[in-house]
Structure formats: C-alpha cells, structure tokens
Design a protein around this nucleic acid. Sequence first.
RNA 1: CGGGACGUAGCUCAGCUUGGUAGAGCGCUUGCUUUGGGAGCAAGAAGUCGCAGGUUCAAAUCCUGUCGUCCCGACCA
Length: 486
Amino acid sequence: MALAPENQPLKEIPPKAADLSAWYTAVCIKAELVSYSPVRGCVVLRPYGFGLWENLQKELDARFKATGHENAYFPLLIPESLLTKEADHVEGFAPEVAWVTHGGSEKLTERLAIRPTSEVIIGTMYAQWVESYRDLPILINQWANVLRWEKATRPFLRTMEFLWQEGHTAHANAAEAREETLRMLEVYREFAETVAAIPVYSGAKSASERFPGAVETYSIEALMPDGKALQSATSHDLGQNFSKAYDIDFTDADGLIKHAYTTSWGMSWRMLGAMIMTHGDDRGLRIPPKLAPVEAVFVPIVRGGDDRAVQRAKELAAALRIEGFRVRVDDRDETPGYKYAHWELRGVPVRIEIGPRDVDAQNVVLVRRDKTRGDDDHKTVVSENALAGALRVALDGVHATLHAQALEFLGSHTFVLQDRAAFFAACKNRDGMIDIAWCGRAECEAHVKAETSATTRNTHPLRGGETTCIACGEPATQRAYFAQSY
RNA sequence: CGGGACGUAGCUCAGCUUGGUAGAGCGCUUGCUUUGGGAGCAAGAAGUCGCAGGUUCAAAUCCUGUCGUCCCGACCA
C-alpha cells in the first residue's frame, strides 16, 4: 500500500531506523547544516547550521547573564610551559593537543599549543587579577573555538575544531565553587529540556570519567535512538587544583593568603548533534522551535496566473516579524510539493500554506512538522488576523511534542535492574540507560567496560534500601547510569 | 591507531573482471506551459575519473604510494 505523500521517506536520506549513522550524516549534509572541508575532521558550518548555533548561543548566553556572568575572550595559543603546570590536566589532553612550532619559517623557542580548552590560560590571567577576597568571585564565560586532535570524527558529535562556550569562575571558598558548578549544571539541564526539547539525566561523573584536573565533574547525558548515551554538557568543580598550579591566590578577610576555588563548564555544538539525532525522522530534521533558524515558512500557491498569494504571504510575514517571529517566504519558482519536502528536510517547525482560496477567505493553513496526515491537527485553517496567536500555539505545540516523544523514549529505554546477568546483557545489547546500584569502584567500571563496552554516564544518590553493587556485589555507595556512549 | 568498504558531472551511481581515450538518472541553464505533496515539453552546459608515481603503443580500468569519506573496534574534556 502506498504511503500518503506526506509520510513518504525523502529521496535524499535513508530511513532513520535502518542505519542511524548513515541517516545522521545524510541529514547534516542534505539539510545544509554542514559541509565537509578540505581539512580532515573539520566541517564548515553553513548558514543554516550557524543559525542553529546562533539560537543556542542566544538562549544560553541569556542564562549565563542572568546568573551573573560576563563574556570575555582569551588567546587561542597557549605556551607549552603554561600548559604543563597542572600534571593531570596535561596528561589528560596530551594526545589531542596540536602544536604551533613555527612562526613563518622561524622555529619557535617555545611551542604553542592550540587550546583544547582554556583552563590554563584563563587561570594564569586570574592569578594576575585576584589579590583580595573582594576580587572574588570572578564569573567569566567565553564563546570560542577549540581544537582537539581526534582520530574519528563526525559532524557536530566529534570534530577536531569545534565551537563551544566555556565558563570559568574563581571563588573564595569550596562551598561557593561547588554551588556554582551545580548551578551551571542545572542551567544546562534546563536549557536541554526547554530549548532543545531533550530530556537528560544530570549527575556526577565517576572518577574515571572526570575532567583531567577536576575534583568533581558533572554532566547531562541524553539518550540517542541507537541506545547510546551522548554527553551533552559538563560542569567541573576544579577545587584548588588549578589555583595551586597557576597561583590564583588572594588575601582573605582573616588576613590569610589562600588559594581560590575554580570551576569550569561547557556546552559545544555537539548539543546540536544530540538535537538532530533525537528529534529527526525519515523526512529529515525536526528542529525545536526555539532553536529553529526559521520558525515558519510561507509557501504561497500560484494558480492559473493568480499570484496574489505571494504578495499576501510577504505582507503576513512582515507582520509576523514585527511580532518577533523568525519567518520566511519561499517564493521560488518551484512546485508547492517540492517546497514542502525541502523545508521538512530542514526541519522548519511550521509551514504556512496560502493560496488564492485562502487569500479570498483571508485565511492561511498552518501545518506542523510534528504531525502527519491522519493527525487531527496536522493542518489547521487560521484566519489572517488570528495568525500570530495560532503560530505561537503551533510552535509551542511542536516543542511539546518533540519533548514528549524524547521523554517517552528515554523513559522506555531506561532500565532499573537488580540482576547481574540482566545488567551485563542490557549493557552489551545497548538497550539504553541502565540504572543500577553501584559500588563506585574504578575496577568495577573497568570490568563492565571490558565485558560490554558500556561505562558509567553519571551517578545519582541511592534511593535507600540498596545494599550491593549490581555489577560486582561489593557494597553499593550510589546509583549509576551505565550505557555505551558516543 | 587496527579491520573492512568506497572515491567517476552539483547529487546518486554504471563503466573496471577482459586496458583502446567517459555514460545514465536526478539536478543545473534558457524558453514555453505549469503550481493546494517532490511538474511537463524542448534545447543546452557541465567531469584533470581524489591525488602522485609506475607498467604499457595506450590507464577510469592493472600495480604502488598517498589523501579523504563511511562502517566496526581502540582511544577520547
């Protein structure tokens, strides 16, 4: 039986369920988010993809400002002597650091690292800026690119150069630093849910998954359709490790010189990869409205030389822009069906069809990307003067659907297990997030990884009543989500 | 970094086994007709066959190397 036209798969991409990897790559390319570049492992972020990033920036940045942070910018290059001060940190990043060795044809006396992250250079500057407890806290964020020499790359999920933000703060005491770390973790969690429409598990990382040099690392973890977890943001309590290595010290109110407590936290364009995989379907992207470069696209229908709909669409679009909507009119000389498929592939949340009949009746037809024929509210006729309100409702509806579907998936693919054999099988099968009582020991985690290739994603407190680790039988100290990961 | 596969027109691919100097569909350009789910007709443009060597009278085709992409592992704030 033939599928209804709006339910047919696209020509450009394979079915999502058949091969997630192939689907993902095809969508990233065909929706014109990225292009491969002549540089191995580096992609070009095209205008439509950059539009996603800009919206992510706008939403996150507002949250950073609201929590008291300011933006600044630090150098791309880091002298080798600076990088090597914090032992764990250097060791952790050593294999991924790219080095500048020459200026022109002249060899440098000291190599310069291209930043894989900026704790070092920022810590060095903080050391100069901080003298008194009155100088604290320092709450700075930077939007930047970083470079890590990766072996296997994929658009957004892992590229050698990538865009991100990294927040770096310094505080007078440990409690305040921990509070900051957890505050920003919660900012990320809230962002993931309300902007990207992705439900996540947030919690502390195990010791082996910790950021090099951190006292404690927290993360938000999303679950992808193939059952693999995707770390979507991290927040680190660096304790005094970096302040000791980089001499960030200050005179406290009691007259004593003390080392500051620092934090760092970051989210990268990897979040966009999570969004693409979580929400996309066989027809392409489904972008949550708050991230969508185009929230609604007008497709005017011309009939028998009657092109009044084009002009009307432009007028209505102009009015919507004044209301703050990101809208576009597709007045190209293509058939409507072509345009429908074109914008569905690109994940535009709402399509607004307008033809001569609508112009006469002063109506438009709203079509939601999250609906297909058969759904009651797939297409709704809206009068022109009610358009702005109806569009708002439709966009909110799309977000709600995407979030609800993702939440349902996460819920139905999270397994609270009590049995050792079932636990190992689930990890190996890549069933999803496997939630067990855990001992917290690195040896146990390493064993599970060797047997199943799953690792802890993050941890959460015992509920009460658990006594032993499901994986190894030692005393349980916490609960952990195990999963294979990206 | 290991195992496997693949690089031919903007895209998807055929041609390679058995060397003889490059094709199809889609897309693109122009014109006309069209337009409520991927339009039709006509004409036209477009490829150093990833790159570099080698074998040969002759290489997209055979050999070697190299770069890139994809898949599976390893590694991975």
